[in-house]
């Protein structure tokens, strides 16, 4: 963990912006589709916040512990 350097705005907001944008695309795309491409896109995009949360929150730590 780096402690000295301050993160730039890009470093802080890069991931959150991407996750937020994909969440938005997912929420909207499903509205225009009934069992079609839009629903698949919605599923993939809305899986991103879940996956990112799970990875950084729990999975990564488990993986790190295993490799030690």
């Amino acid at each position: 963990m780096k402690k000295s350097s301050h993160r730039s705005g890009m470093a802080i907001w890069g991931w959150p912006s991407l996750v937020g944008l994909l969440s938005g695309v997912g929420l909207v795309s499903g509205l225009f589709s009934d069992g079609g491409v839009g629903d698949v896109l919605a599923g993939v995009c809305l899986a991103v916040p879940v996956a990112v949360g799970a990875w950084f929150g729990w999975i990564r730590r488990g993986a790190a512990a295993d490799s030690r």
Partner: peptide, 29 residues
């Protein structure tokens, strides 16, 4: 760094990091 969860210190710090992480990823939803 994005997604940092400091588990090796006090539990409060761990939960602060999880709060920030999950809060920011679920933000739009």
């Amino acid at each position: 760094d994005f997604g940092t969860v400091r588990r090796d210190r006090r539990p409060r710090l761990k939960w602060l990091d999880l709060h920030n992480l999950l809060g920011i990823v679920t933000l739009v939803w």
